[in-house]
Design a protein around this nucleic acid. Structure first.
Lengths: 339, 339
DNA sequence: CTTCGGCGATGCAACGTTGTAAACTATCCT
DNA sequence: AGGATAGTTTACAACGTTGCATCGCCGAAG
């Protein structure tokens, strides 16, 4: 059995409350008493019971991170960043997978389990803008991603439009004229796909290049196989293009693979850029140019906002924060400069 | 403020204990009473306070999963599997990253936070066999991986030797004669690298092929860049080989990349097999043959064993379980059969 | 010499739940 | 009708902690 305050108190010959005072660095404890208590703590190997402390204090020291699936590299890296950011503040992270299922996403917010943590960082993939009013829980929520704006919760998002525009401009600056898009979502306006396509169109428009739906490939999911299928689709249609903007890295990698199989050289025949800066893009063949959306900053900002909300739930109106991005130029867009 | 048992009791006009009985499906509750209580629960939106329940019951309904880092795909997929397996039993998973740091790995087992969960599934990467006696915590532990055998904890491991032997035989069956190894660890006997190299040697020996240290590349870490560097090393040495066994998929992918850059065709010139069956191996170019080590089974077995230990901590001596593996033949070892 | 203030230590209550035991009620048998 | 029996509800304590209020003590101030 684990030792309790009472056990320590008995050994140290003080009241259990004094032991509590020692542990909580209460100011008025005589040095000799403190020493005696600490010796007893040492001796018994006492460790505070965090469950009891939680019950009493109403705080758990844990937060929940809800995301679609860890086997999707983007979310694995996001989780990594969130856990590290949380650890810096002594918080531990409980992970819930929703499988991008609407029902499970709603359940996460409604589950009593959520109260085993002090707050929720939530990255939905099934819920959308029309569900903004459903984003609420018994604990403070920080929303991630680009599917829902203007909810009652704090929100951290990447600069999708601006970053996608910069990625497109990166290709244009290489002298590319016909930039295909892989991964658009039919009819989507917000959401990662919608916003990134918007940035793409903005870039074209600024240069006076007409938008051609014939070189935009639509997909349903953002897995590598979808990127491959989309590229097959483009090639089958006989589309002509000299560059590809994969709306995320995974799609871009699928597209690169199909391009290479079809005999195109990347970047010489077709330059390719992705989006997300997954770790693996540094090791693919060729290494993939991409957009670093500021994952660490997203994680740290989310944790900071969540802690502020936990401390003061109604301290301020919901905030929406965009993180800084960065174009990462690698082999898949190397050389080939128009000069 | 959240409603409590007392609030519900007041509304329903019963004692708070009766409400508790309703919630816990206590048998002797009159139907009319139950209905009245349930109505009150509904009305107030009562949700049990899990922290209080934990304090009272001594169980939290959570388990801790400690692993090196989620941004390593193998561990991300392992975590995915563990979370899903845990969810089937109504358990929630708290993830601790150790960064493969010895100090942090020891801290995970010593931290009082661990008591916020009922058990620990621990995949160490810095601790080794000599630390077997250090594997203990205030909660039951199930050890994963191949670094430590014979500890006082239950242990789930893949069949490294047998599976590596099968992988090697798969290459031999294609008619390959000189199989290079990428990813060996200097002087390691157990551990994934040591065991898989053992399986490789066993396969060669069984066919009467001498072991040649000249086509074994040693690395320190198992990242993709290490696989690439190791392959560079082999090529620079002028080593000659017609197949490669990457001791994990990531290494194999790095090696494939360098081979392709150097003008070798995979699998025609050099066949390659990896180990782990990462999701992404299904999408690389070429798709990578590999060993499926039974990740789902590992996760489910670990959860099952942990739950048994939680229920009965000293019910039985420590168990060591090996999961079933499967050779996954894909393009990187396709055709080229000797026939 | 009394009073006051601050230090040091303590006791009690409370956080919200469940287990144990007891109390009450209705039913059934003799 | 009396008592045993089973069914239903309740009271109380406990899980281990922290906040609040209190209390005794000592030195300083009046």
């Amino acid at each position: 059995m684990a030792a309790t305050l009472h056990d320590v108190a008995r050994v140290a010959g003080v009241s259990f409350k004094t032991v509590s005072n020692v542990i909580n660095n209460h100011p008025h404890v005589r040095d000799t008493t403190r020493a005696r208590v600490e010796k007893a703590i040492e001796e018994l190997g006492y460790r505070p019971n965090l469950t009891a402390r939680s019950l009493r204090s109403g705080q758990t020291g844990a937060i929940t991170l809800a995301l679609p699936q860890l086997s999707l590299p983007y979310f694995a890296e996001l989780a990594d960043a969130v856990i590290e950011a949380a650890a810096k503040h002594g918080l531990v992270v409980l992970i819930e997978q929703t499988g991008a299922d609407r029902k499970r996403e709603l359940e996460v917010m409604a589950s009593p389990r959520l109260k085993m943590s002090d707050g929720l960082i939530f990255s939905p993939l099934a819920l959308g803008q029309e569900d903004a009013h459903l984003i609420k829980a018994e604990v403070p929520v920080v929303l991630l991603g680009e599917r829902i704006f203007g909810s009652a919760s704090d929100h951290v998002t990447m600069q999708n439009v601006t970053a996608a525009r910069a990625a497109t401009e990166h290709l244009l600056d290489l002298g590319k004229k016909r930039i295909a898009v892989v991964g658009a979502h039919e009819g989507e306006v917000i959401g990662s796909a919608g916003l990134r396509l918007r940035g793409y169109r903005d870039a074209l428009e600024a240069r006076g290049i007409p938008y051609d739906d014939g070189i935009v490939a639509y997909v349903v999911d953002w897995h590598r196989s979808n990127g491959a299928a989309a590229m097959h689709d483009l090639l089958d249609r006989g589309a002509s293009f000299d560059a590809v903007f994969g709306l995320n890295d995974t799609l871009a990698q699928g597209a690169v693979r199909v391009l290479q199989e079809a005999g195109f050289r990347v970047p010489d025949d077709v330059a390719v850029i992705g989006f997300d800066d997954l770790d693996e893009t540094r090791y693919s063949l060729p290494t993939l140019s991409t957009v670093d959306p500021g994952r660490t900053e997203i994680a740290e900002t989310a944790i900071r906002m969540l802690m502020e909300r936990i401390k003061e739930p109604n301290g301020m109106p919901p905030r929406e924060i965009e993180t800084a991005f960065r174009i990462v130029a690698r082999e898949s867009t190397a050389g080939a400069s128009r000069a």
